[in-house]
Design a protein around this nucleic acid. Structure first.
Length: 368
DNA sequence: AAAACTACCAACCGCGCGTGT
DNA sequence: GACACGCGCGGTTGGTAGTTT
């Protein structure tokens, strides 16, 4: 379908930062006539701008109800929670934050929150622990060859591994938040969101394409090739996310509130647990970690305290010393504290997750 | 002091969808 | 159904200020 550009790039329309004079013209015009037809507005308001530019300037900056300044803690908490359910639906998120624009929230997410989550070892897209931080080769080898100094039995390590996989499968979302998201989808006028919802897709449209499934399919296929009467391992790969729309809290699947998974500790897995089970962590330099009151299942105080303790000691954990294999930079990912490298680091870590597990390792009686 | 690097964010861009003709 | 238009969304860019080397 053909579509004419909103403005001719060669007709001398101005681009770039707005001047005070332009702002005043735009404000004055909208105060007198209101906004509506953005295409004709620039001409009527004597502005050498395209309508789109005028609309953006108004909605993102000049609107009288815009709230400037730093995001409050409550706002940040809301953003994280809604993003965990809605994904990059910035306009929908913005609709829940009076005075904030989608652009502002998007910028704040990309420059602050996203980086912070990465440093916390949380995938900012799926809001799940980053599996790319984990040393799978050491987990498997220690389980399969029994050379780990750890006193954990093979079965318990497999259980831990399963738990880990479950963790990665489950977006860490407060069920109440799902209700809110459902209402958002229902009340939103945005057709796309309604489409997503009616199609019974995961709440977070990005989640379905994220690391958990895409990166584990290969691994799952390998496991399913192994003759076994025990289907517990393969069954730990749920391929249906429809539960995310289930409003019944009681049906919410295993997540970090399943305390039995963590040696009866009434908290999320702590640093010791992760370290003892072969999970490498890195230094956290960020001195501020949000305390998410309704999000304590994972982002909450217990986990934060653990992070802070680790931070205080400036401890750098990577491939655990218990690993039977030498430290392998290809299977261990250190969270970078230098921000610009984070995306690259994160991407490359995800790529590392694509490693193939040799069949001869999986085809082991010990594994079953 | 100056160059290099980093962080931030306003603004731009391309695309998709709804609506009207 | 085809097309034009208006609008809004999400991703990206580029300018600038601050920081580090």
């Amino acid at each position: 379908m053909g579509r004419t550009p909103c403005c001719d790039k060669n007709n001398g329309l101005k681009k770039g930062p707005w001047t005070t004079e332009e702002d005043e013209k735009l404000i004055d015009y909208i105060q007198k006539h209101g906004y509506g037809n953005w295409r004709t507005l620039p001409k009527n308001a004597d502005l050498q701008r395209c309508g789109k530019s005028c609309r953006l300037r108004w909605t993102n900056y000049l609107r009288p109800d815009i709230k400037r300044g730093r995001f409050s803690f409550e706002e940040e908490e809301t953003i994280i929670q809604l993003h965990s359910v809605l994904g990059n639906k910035w306009s929908t998120i913005a609709s829940r934050l009076p005075g904030r624009t989608d652009n502002e929230i998007k910028n704040y997410w990309n420059t602050h929150i996203r980086k912070r989550l990465l440093r916390m070892g949380i995938n900012p897209v799926t809001h799940t622990p980053r599996l790319d931080l984990l040393d799978f080769s050491s987990i498997l080898c220690s389980s399969l060859y029994g050379s780990s100094p750890s006193s954990l039995s093979t079965s318990s390590q497999i259980n831990n591994f399963q738990t880990l996989l479950n963790m990665q499968q489950q977006p860490l979302v407060n069920p109440e938040l799902l209700k809110l998201a459902s209402s958002l989808f229902n009340t939103s006028s945005h057709h796309q969101q309604q489409q997503d919802y009616s199609n019974n897709q995961p709440c977070n449209p990005q989640t379905q394409n994220q690391v958990p499934l895409s990166h584990f399919v290969q691994f799952q296929d390998q496991i399913q090739q192994v003759p076994s009467t025990n289907s517990s391992v393969s069954s730990s790969f749920p391929n249906n996310h429809s539960h995310l729309f289930e409003p019944n809290v009681n049906t919410y699947p295993l997540n970090f509130t399943d305390h039995s998974s963590y040696n009866n500790q009434d908290s999320v897995p702590d640093i010791d647990w992760l370290e003892n089970n072969g999970f490498g962590l890195s230094t956290f330099k960020e001195d501020y970690i949000p305390q998410l009151s309704s999000y304590n299942q994972y982002y909450g105080s217990d986990y934060n305290q653990n992070l802070m303790i680790n931070q205080t000691s400036n401890q750098v954990l990577s491939t655990p010393s218990s690993s039977p294999t030498p430290m392998n930079s290809n299977s261990t990912c250190i969270i970078g504290s230098n921000t610009e490298d984070e995306k690259e680091s994160y991407d490359s870590c995800n790529n590392r997750m694509k490693f193939e597990i040799p069949l001869h390792i999986l085809d082991s009686n010990e594994f079953m």
